[in-house]
């Protein structure tokens, strides 16, 4: 049987050209850089991360100096540089006086952690290796001996909320707070 040698005809070349052009066009469309991504610089930011519903023992496990993995993609590592504990509050209806009142929930605590972490700041985001640092988005942190869900509630000095005094600053020494010292004023972490 004679060997059948294949040769490209002009239609084959047309097909190859169309496919190559489609691949180049698709790559250009999907991979072209956005204008705002061109201006970027990597630096440390500090942000406040709030986690609710903790017992005092759990709240006191978040200590300054601990490394934390930030985000569901577990690609960013930061460090807790401050940790404060607040009583947990919730808004309740006062159905007699027609007002909303803020009340403390006994034995539930809110921890507000200030975390320092490197990000790439662009015109549109504080981009970590895995996910953006954005106020209001639910995400997770993990550290040595703890993992919790919560929200970023402030970034740098620009958006940090004015919180009440924490119920204690004893997280570094591990002292338990005096529950009588809880403030009942509105505000603070909720």
């Amino acid at each position: 049987m004679a060997e059948h040698k294949y040769k490209f005809n002009w239609l084959d070349w047309v097909i190859v050209s169309v496919v190559i052009l489609a691949i180049i066009g698709g790559a250009w469309y999907f991979l072209k850089p956005k204008a705002q991504q061109n201006v970027a610089s990597t630096s440390d930011i500090t942000f406040q991360f709030q986690t609710k519903g903790a017992s005092m023992q759990v709240a006191q496990s978040y200590k300054p100096g601990l490394k934390v993995i930030f985000g569901e993609k577990r690609a960013d590592v930061g460090e807790i540089i401050d940790a404060k504990i607040y009583p947990q509050r919730d808004d309740l209806e006062d159905t007699l006086n027609g007002a909303w009142k803020t009340s403390i929930i006994p034995d539930f605590y809110v921890a507000v952690l200030t975390i320092k972490m490197p990000v790439t700041e662009t015109a549109s985001a504080f981009a970590g290796a895995g996910e953006n640092v954005t106020i209001g988005k639910q995400t997770i942190i993990e550290g040595k001996g703890f993992a919790t869900e919560g929200y970023v509630i402030g970034i740098n000095d620009i958006t940090q909320p004015q919180l009440d005094d924490p119920i204690n600053t004893a997280t570094r020494s591990g002292d338990m707070p005096d529950e009588d010292s809880f403030t009942t004023t509105q505000g603070g972490a909720q």
Binding site: I135, G136, I153, G154, Q160, P161
Partner: peptide, 15 residues
């Protein structure tokens, strides 16, 4: 909350 409100104010004139 307050932190988010400040974040929105900081977002003026951004995308």
């Amino acid at each position: 909350k307050e932190g988010a409100a400040k974040g929105f104010q900081a977002s003026n004139d951004t995308d």
